[in-house]
Amino acid sequence: MTQQYWTIISIFIGGAIGTLLRYFINLQTVTLLFPIGTLFENLLGSLLLGTLTGWVAVKVIPSFLKVGLGVGFCGGFTTMSTLAADSAFLAGQASLFQSGMYLITSLIGGVLFALLGMLLGHRLATKQKVGERA
C-alpha cells in the first residue's frame, strides 16, 4: 500500500476512535451541568493535540501516525460544531453571561491547554531522547 492509503486509513481509524470516545463522554456527562462534556472534550483534546505537536517537534514519527492521531483522533474527539450549538443554546435558554463564560473558558482554556500540552510533549520527548543517549 502507498503512503497515501496508510494516511487515509489512519485518519479513518483515529477519527472513529476519537468520535466514539467523545460520544461515550457525552453519555456519561449528559446529566451533569450542561455542557460540561463538550468543555471537557475540547480542553482535553487541545491538551492531547498540543502534546502530540510538542512531541513531534523533537521526535520523528511516521507521517501516517502523526495525522492519524492529530487529524483523526483529536479531530474526531474535539468538536467545534457542538461548541457553537451549545453556546447558542445557552444564550437562548440560560443567559448571555453563561454563554459568554462557556465560550471564553472553551477558547482561552483550549489555547492554554494546547500550549501546556506542547511544553509537556516537548519535555517528554526531550527527556526520553536524553535517556536514550545514556
Rank of each mutant, 00 (worst) to 15 (best):
L124N: 11
C74Q: 01
P62F: 05
G117C: 11
G70Y: 08
V111W: 14
L65K: 15
I13P: 01
V130E: 15
F24V: 04
A84G: 04
G37V: 01
V60W: 13
L116D: 03
V60S: 14
G18N: 03
S81D: 06
L21I: 00
Q93I: 02
A134S: 10
S87N: 12
A84Q: 08
L107K: 09
L48A: 08
I11Y: 05
K59V: 10
T31L: 01
M118I: 15
S46C: 15
M1F: 00
G121R: 01
L83M: 12
K129V: 01
L83F: 15
F89H: 09
L119Y: 12
K129W: 01
F34D: 04
Q4S: 14
I25Y: 06
T79H: 04
V111I: 15
L39G: 01
L112R: 10
L44N: 11
T51I: 13
G15A: 03
H122M: 13
F89L: 11
T53F: 12
D86W: 03
F73K: 00
V130D: 09
I61C: 13
L65A: 14
L47A: 10
G18S: 07
T82N: 09
Q93K: 14
V71E: 12
G110Q: 05
A91T: 11
L44I: 15
Y23P: 00
A94K: 13
T105G: 08
Y23N: 10
T105N: 08
L83Q: 02
I36F: 13
S81V: 05
I11L: 11
I17Q: 00
W6E: 08
Q128F: 10
A57K: 07
L69D: 04
G68I: 06
L90I: 07
T19P: 00
M80R: 01
T51R: 07
L96K: 04
P62Y: 07
L83W: 10
S46A: 14
F113V: 07
Q128P: 04
A125R: 06
P35L: 00
